[in-house]
Design a protein around this nucleic acid. Sequence first.
DNA 1: AATCTATCCAACCGCTTTTAA
DNA 2: GTTAAAAGCGGTTGGATAGAT
Length: 337
Amino acid sequence: MAKQSCCHKKKLRRGLWSPEEDEKLMNHIAKYGHGCWSSVPKLAGLDRCGKSCRLRWINYLRPDLKRGTFSQEEEDLIIHLHSLLGNKWSQIAAQLPGRTDNEVKNFWNSYIKKRLRERGIDPATHQPLAEPAAATAAAAVTTTTTVSRRSVFGDVDLIPTTATTTIHQAPPPSFEGGSMLDGVKLAVELDWPVAGDGVTSRPCYLQGGCFDMDALQQHCGSMSIPPAPVVPSASASSSTLTSMAEAEHCSTNNVAAGGNLPWLDLGANAVAGAGGHVVGSCYAGALDELRWLEYFDSAFQAAESQQGALQPGQCVYGGKDDVPVHFDVHGGLSNWC
DNA sequence: AATCTATCCAACCGCTTTTAA
DNA sequence: GTTAAAAGCGGTTGGATAGAT
């Protein structure tokens, strides 16, 4: 028999919160803080369980909540972080100031998942959905152990060091001084698989590169990989173009298109320059399309790049188009520059 | 106008982890 | 070291609402 919740046991009120209940809870916390949540309902005069009060406060009443629709940058960041962390909603939400894990989770399930599927991307794996063409590409990937999954975006510092999955949160990303992806620099301690534990290949992301975890473990051991310089990736550029378009849409001051995105000279300037001076809001839709197409394409690059691996000595960022290079760690770490 | 269907999101459920006794 | 309570987390549910028929 299923265990009854605390609310059931005590026959407490459940369901939606009334404005009066919200007010009681807010007043109580404003005066005394929440302290021990189990004592909050009694002290606040609420017929709720402490757990329910806590959830209501965290997800709805907290004054620092942002609420409202998610921005393009937030969406980009969620997709990116999900590709790294999976359904670790609290960790993802921690990178999004003013957003709750519940909010992020709902947004993912109701919107992002659908959009990814529409574009032929499996939201669970961030790889192309199984289709004839995609299956071929996927088969190519499985022929080697060097590539398992590719980062959708390539501009986040991820530094594998030890054996946990702790995200060290950088200072909150700024919404004003740059794109969110630009603001978030993550150092991740990855959960290294132990040989024979059944985990055959997990991705390790380092600023546009994608590594086979086992391979990296073999090669790195306890070595520390120095953070590579922040280099714009082609995949980041299109999403940022969208952001730029939106920024332009929101601002009448015509802030220079790339002004708040210092590292985004690549695609940004190309478009802004070619189009005159700035990207008008009317291009936002097209840019969004571009972004998604690029995202889709990037999923195939895993298969493609492993066939055209870096030549010995070739710099990861030495490509003529600044396309993030995806290389084999077995012989590729020395190529990092 | 009435009904059906899809979508969104707040809240709940139950499990795991952390903390305190 | 053990146990119970509290807190945290991710998955799921159900009600409200919008849009389609």
